[in-house]
Design a protein around this nucleic acid. Structure first.
Lengths: 233, 233
DNA sequence: ACCTGAACACCGTTCAAGT
DNA sequence: ACCTGAACACCGTTCAAGT
């Protein structure tokens, strides 16, 4: 927590895939998506480019590994949290908020998640999230058919909504999470309010709903809607 | 439909933003995301790089414009289609399938949509889709509160599910849409079936649901689930 | 087996110069 | 106002050479 903890990487440690992925996450967090370059990475790890390619096939694989590492932590963290000890519905909420928070903490995650899922759904990220959500949904006791559909809808909604609400500053978040976020949503709201009323008769009147606060509450309302649909089958 | 229709761009026409965007879409369709470079674009339009920069700020803006152009067509196309003349539920289905098909026809669209929405939600793409879906949802007659939430869930689900099911071959789709797609889903299914049973007790048993066919039906089942939740409020 | 780092191919963007 | 195209800065990746 000290301002300048760990400056130069300890050169004594040997290079490994884990250390490379760890450095990549740190670089993404501090310098944004455009900050992750092999040159920046070699400097941070005080090594050569070829050394990284010995452990990692290419940049795409590195980004996939970084995404998976962060998602794995986010999904597993809340599974047995005290909050999920409540109703099954609370369990779904807990995992959803875990992913929501992870995207808020790592702005690059929204984009990478979307890239990962659309470009290589066969990768490790999709089943990990699916399992995290599905585990909670399973506790609600429905048929396999309803379970699969509900979990699919929840996963896509969570990733999409959290991604769209994430402040993506490209150079890491600037101030505290609350401050930035409120201004960001205000901006989007203002832009939606300036839409042509004739072309956007439905969207314009609800633009104010994005204003300022309670995007978490709105996010959870969507989850409740899906759960209600599941119960109604 | 002839194999070699329009080879060299007619140099007589003046350059314009529309022609550039049109060429970008064609390039994305035929050569994939990595095929869209300013060099390929200048060659296709038989012009210089600076000429493009006169009409378009940078590559990001060009990709946003290409995405918006395709989405605008997809969303508007089905709004007054004969199929949406049925129940309001059919209207939602029609717009959803319109976007689904657009992503299938333009594999790069899934990625770009995700990038656009997560990186610049203030852009034109988000409200356009929101309006397209919301218009249909509005016909179902619910309170503004329920309307906003349901539309949000639907939009994210549609984009996420369609994106994940899209075959992304990076160099354009290879064969007919049906053939490729079935094999693609089979592959993903096979990979999910090889997951560790202990770590994935919920996901592995439903892997077979991705096999081969009827992903459209599964897609629509998710939409019905949301609509059921809306009615149950 | 693991690492070095110069070299290569390629890309987005700029800008002095033209019409 | 609109276009040309060479030049620049930067990037991912390779590979002969080292230990």
């Amino acid at each position: 927590m000290t301002p300048r903890a760990r400056r130069s990487p300890r050169r004594t440690e040997a290079l490994s895939r884990e250390r490379i992925v760890e450095a990549a996450v740190e670089l993404l967090d501090t310098a944004g998506e455009s900050g992750l370059t092999f040159r920046a990475l070699t400097e941070r790890l005080s090594t050569g480019a070829g050394a990284i390619y010995w452990h990692v096939a290419n940049k795409g694989e590195l980004l996939a590994a970084a995404t998976d590492a962060v998602v794995a932590e986010a999904v597993s963290a809340d599974v047995s949290s005290p909050r999920s000890a409540g109703s099954p519905r609370d369990g779904v909420r807990a995992v959803a908020l875990g992913l929501y928070d992870a995207i808020e903490a790592h702005p690059w995650l929204a984009t990478q998640l979307a890239l990962q899922l659309s470009r290589s759904p066969g990768g490790p990220v999709a089943p990990r999230i699916f399992e995290g959500i599905g585990r909670q949904v399973g506790a609600l006791g429905v048929s396999e058919d309803g379970w699969f559909t509900a979990t699919s809808v929840l996963v896509h909604y969570i990733l999409g909504a959290a991604g769209q609400n994430a402040v993506n500053t490209e150079s890491g978040r600037a101030l505290g999470p609350g401050v930035d976020r409120a201004r960001f949503l205000d901006d989007v709201s203002a832009q939606w309010e300036q839409l042509d009323p004739d072309a956007y008769p439905f969207t314009r009147p609800v633009a104010h709903r994005m204003r300022g606060h309670d995007d978490r509450e709105q996010f959870l309302a969507g989850i409740d809607l899906v759960l209600a649909g599941m119960a109604a089958r």
